[in-house]
């Protein structure tokens, strides 16, 4: 059985870093887009987020 040590190939490690970072970025972008940009038909989300959108300088209305 191969034992994995801390000295794995550097290229493996850097690609290991891509996935968690990409997951975080995806989640972050999803949160920002849905809160800051989504326009729902009943205006529930828009009206709830209204003051925050204005003060964060997102296009609103």
């Amino acid at each position: 059985m191969k034992t994995l040590t801390a000295t794995a190939a550097p290229s493996t490690i850097s690609s290991v870093k891509i996935l968690p970072a990409l997951s975080a970025i995806t989640l972050g972008v999803a949160i920002i887009l849905s809160l800051g940009f989504m326009q729902d038909s009943g205006n529930y989300l828009h009206n709830a987020a209204h003051d925050g959108r204005h003060s964060a300088a997102f296009p609103c209305h």
Binding site: L22, A24, A30, I31, I32, L35, A48, A49, D51, G52
Partner: peptide
């Protein structure tokens, strides 16, 4: 109601931005 929604919105927005920032720092 209006104030608490603003606090929730700002905190969630902060989480979203912090996720991007943390990913950048980490990379």
């Amino acid at each position: 109601q209006r104030h608490s929604l603003t606090v929730i919105f700002n905190s969630l927005m902060g989480c979203g931005f912090a996720l991007l920032l943390t990913a950048g720092l980490y990379l």
